[in-house]
């Protein structure tokens, strides 16, 4: 089994749709496909709206392009993307700038469930699920 996703070469980022499940419901959001991020990042506003308590979440340090920042970390009930649901997944709560047009980043703690091929010649991503 493999999934072929066509991305828009006119856009600056490759992004995927993901459904984030919370105590109050779920939201299908657009997340950047980011093999440079070790962990998935979701905007605070979505997480709070879905019923997560960010104020009491643990703090961790992340290395960004220019500095080390302290952010909140929590475990979401489930993230569903590329036809795979990952339960109890750790995410960091941090907002990408609104101008990004995105709600977060899908990082390696989700993407490592797939063998991945990026083909810039025909603007496609090929993702093959790894069944561990």
């Amino acid at each position: 089994m493999r999934f072929l996703i066509t991305f828009d070469p006119d856009e600056d980022l490759i992004h995927l749709s993901a459904r984030i499940i919370g105590p109050f419901g779920s939201a299908n959001a657009r997340l950047a496909f980011d093999t440079g991020a070790t962990i998935t990042m979701i905007g605070k506003g979505i997480l709070e709206a879905l019923g997560y308590d960010i104020k009491t979440a643990d703090e961790i340090s992340i290395i960004t392009g220019s500095r080390i920042e302290t952010v909140k970390e929590l475990i979401v009930l489930e993230i569903h993307a590329i036809d795979r649901a990952v339960k109890n997944m750790t995410v960091i709560c941090h907002d990408l700038p609104e101008e990004s047009g995105l709600d977060g980043l899908l990082g390696l703690n989700f993407l490592r469930h797939f063998d991945t091929e990026i083909n810039y010649s025909n603007n496609t991503l090929i993702l093959k699920p790894i069944f561990l």
Binding site: D10, D12, S26, N28, A29, S100, L102
Partner: peptide, 13 residues
């Protein structure tokens, strides 16, 4: 409460 989708309708550029 329920299941929703959030989208930005412009180009991500």
């Amino acid at each position: 409460r329920g299941n929703f989708a959030i989208r930005y309708t412009g180009k991500i550029k």
